Amino acid sequence: MTPTFVYDGDCAFCTTCAEFIERRIPTHARVIPWQFADLDALGLSQEECEEAVQWVAGDGATAAGPDAIALLLRDAGRAWELAGGALQLGPVRLAAWPVYRWVAEHRHLLPGGTAACSLPQAQRDLLFGSQN
């Protein structure tokens, strides 16, 4: 199975970040919004994908949040691999989760973010209709 990086396609900030990954980071992974992914085949739940970005390795192993980002970077090789390795170091990893949570909770305020970014999927579905 091809490694897969899953993000929230309804969030403009997340989509902007995913587009950066696709343009600038030479990963072998498929980068896909969870709304268009076969979550069952990937072994993921909607709740997990709403909580954080997800990495599904070729062997099916998963990681979330900054751990997923670190694995994506390591997959890209070269200088990106160094950045991914640094993100996995104990103290950096420990600090990365609170930073990730803060960004996730405030993504609607960040460049490219929209008000919809701050809503859980169930509320987005009620307001804008289900995309599944």
Rank of each mutant, 00 (worst) to 15 (best):
C11V: 02
L82C: 05
L126Q: 15
A29W: 11
L127I: 13
C49Q: 05
F128L: 14
A86S: 06
A18E: 09
A41V: 06
Y7K: 07
N132M: 09
V31L: 12
W102H: 04
R78H: 12
W102K: 02
R124F: 01
A104D: 04
P3A: 05
P66M: 07
F5D: 02
E47W: 09
L127V: 13
S118R: 11
A76N: 04
A12E: 01
H28P: 09
R101S: 02
L94E: 07
Q46M: 14
L87K: 02
A86P: 00
G77R: 05
P120W: 09
F5R: 01
S45E: 12
L119K: 10
W102Q: 03
A70C: 04
V56P: 10
A96I: 05
D38H: 08
G9W: 07
G85L: 04
G113S: 13
I69A: 15
A83C: 13
L39H: 08
R93W: 07
G112F: 04
A63Y: 01
C17D: 01
P26G: 13
A57I: 04
Q131H: 15
L127R: 15
G65C: 02
C11M: 04
I21Y: 03
A64V: 07
R93F: 00
P33L: 03
G60A: 13
R78C: 08
R23W: 11
N132H: 15
N132D: 15
P66N: 12
Y100L: 05
F36N: 12
P66T: 02
L126D: 12
A64K: 08
L44Q: 10
L82I: 13
F128D: 09
T2V: 15
